[in-house]
Design a protein around this nucleic acid. Sequence first.
DNA 1: CAACATCTCGTTAACGTTACCGAAATGATT
DNA 2: AATCATTTCGGTAACGTTAACGAGATGTTG
Lengths: 364, 364
Amino acid sequence: MIGYYHFINMEEKAENKKVGIKEIAKLANVSIATVDRVLNNRKDVSDKTRAKVQAIIKEHNYQPNLYARALSVKNNLSFAVLIPKTSSQTGYWDLCLKGIKQGIEEFSTFGISIDIFLYDQEDVRTFLKMSEDVLSRNFNAVVIAPIFITETTRFVEECKKRRIESIFVNSDIKGCSSLGYIGPDLYSTGRLAANLTSYLVPANSKVLILNIARGLQNYAYLNTKIEGYTDYLNKLDRSFEILNIDIPSNNYEEIAIDLLRHVNNIEPDLIFVTNSRVSVVGRFFDEYRNIKKPHIIGFDFLTENVDFLANGMVDFLICQRPDKQGYLALNYLYRHFLLKDVKENFKPMPIDILTVENYLFYEN
Amino acid sequence: MIGYYHFINMEEKAENKKVGIKEIAKLANVSIATVDRVLNNRKDVSDKTRAKVQAIIKEHNYQPNLYARALSVKNNLSFAVLIPKTSSQTGYWDLCLKGIKQGIEEFSTFGISIDIFLYDQEDVRTFLKMSEDVLSRNFNAVVIAPIFITETTRFVEECKKRRIESIFVNSDIKGCSSLGYIGPDLYSTGRLAANLTSYLVPANSKVLILNIARGLQNYAYLNTKIEGYTDYLNKLDRSFEILNIDIPSNNYEEIAIDLLRHVNNIEPDLIFVTNSRVSVVGRFFDEYRNIKKPHIIGFDFLTENVDFLANGMVDFLICQRPDKQGYLALNYLYRHFLLKDVKENFKPMPIDILTVENYLFYEN
DNA sequence: CAACATCTCGTTAACGTTACCGAAATGATT
DNA sequence: AATCATTTCGGTAACGTTAACGAGATGTTG
């Protein structure tokens, strides 16, 4: 025997893995139907036998076979997904949709049907129309990306009345949805961007916060990011000059004109693009080579953004796994309705940092 | 009708989701047994009926119900896991073990039994003993963290003779294992560290590469990281002064003495700790407050490392999700043996960057 | 053409759980 | 004491797949 080594054998565990509902029934001297009633704490069981069965279940650490359950149960649950459609400006919501589709693939096996409703994030009327459509059918739950705050709040109220569960992705309206929020902590996301900023530029630098999108007033969640960003930088006390600029357009030519003016005026050392439109800024500095390129930080693993990460135009891309958010939302609903597993209160999603050196391995 | 909106209905898909083996059988005018034979391309089917059934399967895009399959199949697969035990120096392997245990939890439902063999990464004899133990039982496959290159290579050869599949985690020996490697691309990992380095320190800085561990000659994979690191920095052409120092010890007091000497001698602007021992360096500069603290980059999401990330002592922690590696290895074996799903050739694991601002949300 | 091997295919019992149906026991009302 | 309602429980078909078993058809050999 060699002096120092360690060995764990899991066989004991493997041995008593077989405790099924049938064994429990035999041990408790009841039928499997009764055990099933106890397990799913249904009625039609006397307190005495219930206690007896529960004791045996606990004693043998019975774990239900989820696959058998999934096979047996014939439910006709239906979920709705209500998110923005991908615009020509950014493929962000395609990523989310990708995760949703993965979820559909996986959960359709259980007889769950999932309908997708895509609204135009620049036109509140499409959201209203879509949310009406959702209500006109009879869904058990709905996944929502809440862009229009007041309209979404009103919609969720209506859902509550009809006992339709709701869950948010991408951004949150505090205490609104019935099941919670799956997504990043936006304030921390802003702080992280500031943290990276502090590594990129020295004291006394000029930092430009850039908000690009038509209908900016709708994107309330951007402000949370900006708060985190400026809070962090101000606390650093490095005498940064911080400017917050809005460019409320979706047209590159328009944006370029504005950007040219601001950049010439401010001469920033770093530009922080608060959403996924960072590729626009990359393109700008690609075209105006005579202008000194500042450091650039932006969001989201879109192909067009990654291109500018790859060629060194963008320093950091911060990502929040939108596809995983979509998948997790459906996964949570599935567990909420089918398994009795819903202990968790969601933690915020991880915030990923991508550079030219690690983006190749970033899969979701 | 409002002008511009989009709506995807998945109901068509939901409608014909029900194509099961039974429907296929009816449509092909054969029994379900024959369909099963075709699906798992077993023998005992004439070419004619096989073709007919295959056509109908393809036509209706039949997807097997994995849960039913899992429920039905009664296999007695057994896997072995052969990785280092967690030393007092670093909890790294506990993380991997965590993922392994999650896999055991999940796959024991299928009657797969998994045994864990932990060897001492400082004592090759324990590895030899453990690998003998593995061979003495009759496993279908083994997950290996290859620390001792020649010994592991020999062991895998023996496995191949006995038709035992093998898969590597954490680091790779090219072309050795029968099923491949699940883990990070170590060269890129080094490059990423260098990339971050370039953000932390200006030109002409002194950079110290620090290898801390007893028995350093065994950790061949560290060299791959160092290569990536130096290649990147040299190409940058910023006249960095790069020094590579080994401290082959596991004892903090010993390490501190060496470190003190080197730090006083070199006065580095940045220290790159090539493994998970970065907390040791953090502790050192916590104790020697009079010495000017350099920037510090290190590896792995260990609690002791995260502490120094949180208090600002360490700038970046690079992580490779060891628990996910462990889980994925078992997951792959499960799929390899139980599902006919093994199309994939593994992509390297993502390389995560952690700072004081995003570590809170880093779960695995 | 008898005897036997081989190829092809269908029948059916499992896997562990759920849920419907109805039987038995108990309680309540005349 | 008879009737009816309610509570408690067991039997069992079903979910989609696998695999053991055996039946029939066809081929091969003497």
